[in-house]
Simulated assay, not measured.
Amino acid sequence: MRRVHRSPRNGWETIVEAQGLVYGTPARDGGGNARPYWDESVHYEFEMDEILALEADVELLHSMCLKAVEQVILLERYADFGLPEWSWPHIAESWRRSDPHVYGRFDLRYDGRRPAKLLEYNADTPTTVLEAAILQWHWLTDLYPEDDQWNSLHEKLVERWGAVKGTLPGSELHFTWSSADASGEDNVTTAYLQETAAEAGFDTVALAIEEVGFDTELGRFVDLAEAPIEAIFKLYPWEWVLDDDFGKRVVESLPSTMWIEPLWKTLLSNKAILAVLWEMYPGHPNLLPAFLDDPGMLTEYVRKPKLGREGANMTVVGGGFETATGGIYGEEGYVYQLLDPLPEFDGMRPALGAWIVGDESAGLGIRETAGLITDDGAAFVPHRIPQS
């Protein structure tokens, strides 16, 4: 694994905009100055052996996570996840029904020398899928057509939707996101996923989640045309859904209205799962020690809110220093994870976002930042696997 510099393509801004990247505030470089969010002036190279090892790690972590969900439900440990008590039986039923799942993103620490370490699992509303599946693939084919890339995301998403199609009522699938996202990222990400579902044969309908209606007489969700919603993909976190009366109607509508990602993923998208994994697999080479609500034996650690996003409300405690980020999260409790700083390449620290689609590893996206925390100032950079 190494970081490589090269000149961007002529007109790269127009190219990536045409491919859908019409959102994103500038990222930050090591000096705090603005840099492009999509930055193709650098990329990472991997050897095929490294990629094969990472693929195996991701599928193993996925299997371990499913076993962890089974244990949490068996032992009824929902309180450790800060989830409302009324939702607990619905989560268990969603798991027992095997409500279908589509995709997720494991965020990993990896330096090419030691096994990959799981930092967190974005299992419910992972983004950067357009960048990983489309933008960096076209970058590769434009500049390195003879090389390879860990990237079968698009094909696997289409294949997965095809497999899910047989488990859903009808062939119509709604797609929703929140119009409160001013950046437009959620809208574009949802539109891309809608495109992959349409390619798999679904009739698709898009609408903001604020426009999802409920017919009180018939007791069902409806769209703007007052047509029933029988299956819907949401790029909207389950913890936000469960926060009000709308969420009660959502979970009570299951399974007549199927919501994707499924309700049982509330357990995997919550950082409490990191502590459960460590309890189940202590010393595992792909895990970092993690504990619920207390650092335990850790003297250097990262305190993460169980439902935090974009690096918010995190505290890093190391040898002789402590730093923290602001935000709105933490009321639900914290997880304490061993501090294992991201590796440094040219003053930047890459976090690997390894994708799972269905139950198969599917690709890699890389975000890098100068600091210890991968936050909303991180840039997305492509990667390749040289063939010579």
Rank of each mutant, 00 (worst) to 15 (best):
E131A: 12
E159D: 13
T141Y: 06
L108D: 02
K117G: 01
E131H: 12
R160G: 00
I134W: 03
E131G: 08
Q149K: 11
W139R: 10
D111N: 15
V129L: 13
D147I: 03
W139T: 12
P145A: 12
K156D: 07
A116E: 00
P126Y: 04
W137V: 01
L143R: 14
E131T: 11
L130P: 03
D111I: 08
L143V: 10
A163S: 09
L108W: 05
E120L: 09
L118S: 06
K156C: 00
H154L: 06
E131F: 04
W150S: 09
S152F: 08
R114Y: 04
Y103C: 04
N151K: 12
W139Q: 08
T128K: 05
H138F: 13
T125W: 02
D124R: 10
H138C: 05
P115C: 11
L118T: 08
P145I: 11
Q136I: 11
Y144P: 02
V158T: 14
G162E: 00
R113E: 12
T125P: 04
T127L: 04
Y110F: 15
L119Q: 06
L157S: 05
I134Y: 01
L130Q: 04
L118D: 02
W137Q: 13
G112A: 11
W150L: 14
R105P: 01
Y110H: 06
R109E: 00
